[in-house]
Amino acid sequence: MYALGEALKVLPWGTRGSIATPGPARQRYGGNTSCVEILGDEGTLLVLDAGTGVRPLGESLPKNLKRVDILLTHLHMDHIQGLGFFSALYDPEMAVHIWGPTCPTQSLSQRLTRYLSPPLFPVRLPDLPCQLTLHELPGDVTEIGEFRVSASLISHPGSTLGYRIESASSVVAYLPDHEPALGQGRVPDEPEWTSGFDLAEGADLLLHDCQYTESEYIDRVGWGHSTFGQSLDFAKLCGVQHLMAFHHDPSREDDALEGHVRDAVERFEPSFRVSIGAEGTAETLRS
């Protein structure tokens, strides 16, 4: 699908939050839940979250691929539901590394097995044919192929990670479920007191939670998500180049989504680029 030598490519395969929402009213931005492919120019492939979008991603994997790394932000269903349908997990020649948040009472394997085992799923995680390795985060900065990957816990119910992925030339930050305004009703203006700041600081591209409108947020404080406006404030504080709105509310149809983002952009007049995450629309970052 891609030729080596291209710059870092970011391709959303699922941008929806909470639950998959297929249908004609959501065709432009898609109905699959969180999943983003990151492909480096040396061929390293990262998969950010394994929502329902990871199934079609599996069908597009390069034939010669021998390793894939899945970086899970957290284990809510909309971020792992596609895992059992990801073709790489059934390839005995494939090394699959799953990275996810640590927990004080159960290992990552135990927690994933709660979903990947009967009666919820016919195949048990330990029985998958691929060469599977699990890693728990946060920890030290990790080198995966040509990428440096940092993970930190961020403001979202339960143990939830955000990721910062650095290549030689670009930085991508991925915080699809994030409520930095929790407790204040607005994003703090102090970087050191802002959840996720270190991950997103100076990023070329920030994929960030924009699930709610301002009126919706009033009744959903503490649910772990942001408004468009809060995401714009967060992106401004972090000095990013490009904010991609992500984790669209399942109730939001395409026209409404565009309207909400357009209104927020008109009000905030950001100095950086703003786009709406859309399934199948790649963003290429060049040095």
């Binding site: 816990l153 007191w193 996720g196």
Partner: peptide, 18 residues
């Protein structure tokens, strides 16, 4: 300036309301 860990940030948020 490094960011505080999320637990410290949330602790401040809680303390700010007590």
């Amino acid at each position: 300036m490094g960011q505080h860990d999320i637990e410290v940030i949330l602790m401040r948020q809680l303390a700010g309301h007590l």
